[in-house]
Design a protein around this nucleic acid. Sequence first.
DNA 1: TCCGAACCATGACATTTGTCATGTCTCCCT
DNA 2: AGGGAGACATGACAAATGTCATGGTTCGGA
Lengths: 202, 202
Amino acid sequence: MIRIVIVEDQAMVRGALVALLSLEHDLEIVGEAPDSTTAINIVRATRPDVVLVDIELPDTNGIATVKMLAAELPDIRFIMLTTFGRPGYLQAAIAAGATGFLLKDSPSEQLAQSIRRVHNGVRAIDPDLAVAALTLGPNPLTPRQRDVLRMTRIGKSVQAIADELSLGMGTVRNYLSEAITATGAVNRHDAVRIAESRGWLD
Amino acid sequence: MIRIVIVEDQAMVRGALVALLSLEHDLEIVGEAPDSTTAINIVRATRPDVVLVDIELPDTNGIATVKMLAAELPDIRFIMLTTFGRPGYLQAAIAAGATGFLLKDSPSEQLAQSIRRVHNGVRAIDPDLAVAALTLGPNPLTPRQRDVLRMTRIGKSVQAIADELSLGMGTVRNYLSEAITATGAVNRHDAVRIAESRGWLD
DNA sequence: TCCGAACCATGACATTTGTCATGTCTCCCT
DNA sequence: AGGGAGACATGACAAATGTCATGGTTCGGA
């Protein structure tokens, strides 16, 4: 019997996944969580074999959660489940200690199979995404460029960013300009969008 | 026995929803579709009692799909299922002929209940969202303002938009400016984001 | 130790963007 | 017929944005 915890914020999807996995006789759902905080408590309490984690969570990022839990409980296997096939996410998830990485676009039959694979210590990673992650290469943004992009993302003005980082406005604009070039974007907002879609801002 | 078709693009979620509803003995899944085109064919062929439709679909919008099918097959009930609680979506869905409107954040138990309600001709609408839709009021954007916002959304420059619409650049910039004011945004990209989140661009 | 690469920081300049005043046209109400 | 409301259209102006040249710092390899 493989003991499983499911971490997924959308209640309807979470309930549906529970129903899906309950159909498999060798799998047992021992816990559910809608956010990182709950997830950490439940995993510590139940010590499951496999944890299924959605990356997009309301509080902390699912990757950070896995990183913490994987360090603390090395016997537990983690499978990331995500809507977005962002190569940067895959790279980060592997680095954090995840053994599996599935897209919500994948067929539902694959979920139970991947759980069994991962439980046996075998990696279960979407092959297309693995290729994309290799093709894409590493994050081309410098720390400062990421800073200004992140602050731009939440709607801060150049003036506000300059004040907060104790920089001249020209400097901030320059980082934005460099980030625009590095991402191949056409303006700062486009750069934010592209960097985010590649998982370069986390 | 209530006969159901599920329209949802993410395969894993679709499979999970099928598993969830299969647990209910008075419900029967008679078809599944990942996009609008397939959905229309399946619904015509199977004539279900209730169709569950995700709004965010890869090809056509789920609302447009319901509009067409509801006009053609008035005996069938439709429930919209969506990640985003956008009041404009609710307004548009009701206008298109949907009887139910659920968020993926809602508890999964509610799904089967809503299907039974809707099958009996009773509306099943998230109460918070209903209030929000009433509070928000109608779309404040003029057709031209929507045009330029839509084109801005897909990354077109002012010059490109002006050319395509045979307008002066000043005119296009003015529509953007008006849209920024109307949405309460701080710049054109913010205006796109806000208008989109309210369902004002479809 | 010297050199080059990478990152940080700034200001000058040209372009793009947002606002506003103005005018036209159509449609509806009186 | 007159008059107002609302949408369309434009150009002038001020402010924000993107680019570029330049210089400083740190750090690792030759």
